[in-house]
Nucleic acid binder design. Structure first.
Length: 353
DNA sequence: AAGTCGGGGGA
DNA sequence: TCCCCAGACTT
């Protein structure tokens, strides 16, 4: 029996029942695939339901404003996915009359849709013969065939992509693609794979040579840098002052408290003496530290955040028109980012009137 | 080719 | 801690 045939048999007996598998609607598949980029199925699931509910068809998605989309995306991370989806939805309306394309060549031109997602949409919605290559596929193939070429090198990507397309079941591309990813997620797991009851136990190169835990090979990236954020909570009557982040940095276009960043860790007494602080506040500002220093870990930077209450809003130098400010009831409806979101949850009683 | 973009879970 | 997750985009 061929590799593909064994895989399909395994899938028929062990495949997971996931909500986006019960449709061939390319729009719904696109929603699920973008949400699942670098995201575990369990984490993405509630977001998938929310987006389908809110935007059942692509024209609804295209019509929505970015604020609303970002708010729905809040907490999921990699927010450029949400912004790119909005652009893509508008393109589908403009270029395809609102009928979401299924062809690989069409969908890969949409922002936020790369090789993987285009292959997924094309194969699941119209059975176009394009092999998906995601983290699961890298792991299954590298172990099965004993390939130690790094999966994040240019050569490695090319090698695995060609191999994946050679192995693809051209008669059932969609089913095969689902099968190999499920096999990677359920059976050929990153840690503690279930080798002793694996259907490929006698053919798997890694199992035979005891290399399972050394494959796939991945080159290490740069270690993450440290950043020091100082957030100021400023109340005016029933309002909390919030600032919208710009682009070119983490949390683009999302809301947070007005803040300044220092190149090193700085205690509050020293912070007040800095030039940056002086540009924000008059010397008579009353500053109180709120909560403990908080470390927020991202994939490539460690954010060391401190929060301060400014008790006299009149000490604010900067024009408020440069920021957005809101009634506190509205705070929950803004696309805050995770760090601010969790701070608000913990300290609501301290800062809400 | 390397860097950037989040957050959460498992071991 | 470290690594990974149905990756894509920019430099």
């Amino acid at each position: 029996m061929s590799f593909a045939a064994k895989l399909l048999k395994w899938y028929g007996e062990n495949g997971r029942d996931l909500p986006w598998r019960n449709t061939q609607d390319p729009y719904i598949i696109w929603l699920s695939e973008v949400i699942l980029q670098q995201t575990r199925v369990e984490q993405g699931m509630p977001y998938f339901y929310r987006f389908v509910e809110e935007f059942p068809i692509v024209t609804k998605f295209a019509e929505a404003d970015e604020e609303k989309i970002l708010r729905l995306w809040q907490g999921l991370g990699y927010y450029s996915r949400a912004r790119n989806m909005h652009k893509a939805a508008k393109m589908v309306v403009a270029a395809f009359g609102g009928r979401f394309p299924t062809a690989f060549a069409d969908v890969i031109r949409l922002p936020g849709v790369g090789e993987y997602t285009a292959a997924a949409i094309a194969s699941f919605s119209s059975n176009e013969a394009r092999a998906v290559v995601d983290g699961n596929v890298y792991r299954v193939l590298s172990r099965m065939f004993g390939i130690s070429r790094p999966i994040n090198s240019t050569q490695g990507k090319k090698l695995f992509s060609e191999l994946a397309n050679d192995l693809l079941d051209k008669q059932h591309p969609g089913l095969y693609n689902q099968a190999i990813m499920d096999f990677g997620a359920v059976q050929c797991k990153p840690k503690n794979p279930l080798c002793d009851q694996c259907i490929f136990r006698f053919e798997c190169a890694a199992f035979r040579e005891g290399l399972t835990e050394h494959l796939p090979v991945k080159m290490k990236g740069k270690e993450s840098r440290n950043r020091y954020f100082h957030y100021f909570i400023i109340r005016e009557e029933e309002q909390l002052l919030m600032a919208k982040r710009g682009g070119g940095d983490v949390w683009a276009n999302l809301y947070e408290f007005p803040m300044l960043e220092t190149p090193t860790a700085v205690e509050v007494d020293d912070l007040i003496g800095t030039e940056q602080f002086g540009a924000f506040f008059h010397p008579f500002a009353v500053v109180e530290t709120i909560g403990p220093p908080t470390k927020h870990v991202l994939s490539h930077q460690n954010i060391h955040a401190r929060f301060y209450m400014i008790h006299n809003a009149s000490a604010l130098k900067v024009k408020k028109s440069e920021w957005n400010y809101f009634f506190w009831e509205k705070i929950d409806r803004l696309a805050k980012h995770k760090l601010i979101f969790s701070f608000l949850e913990r300290n609501k009683q301290l800062i809400i009137p």
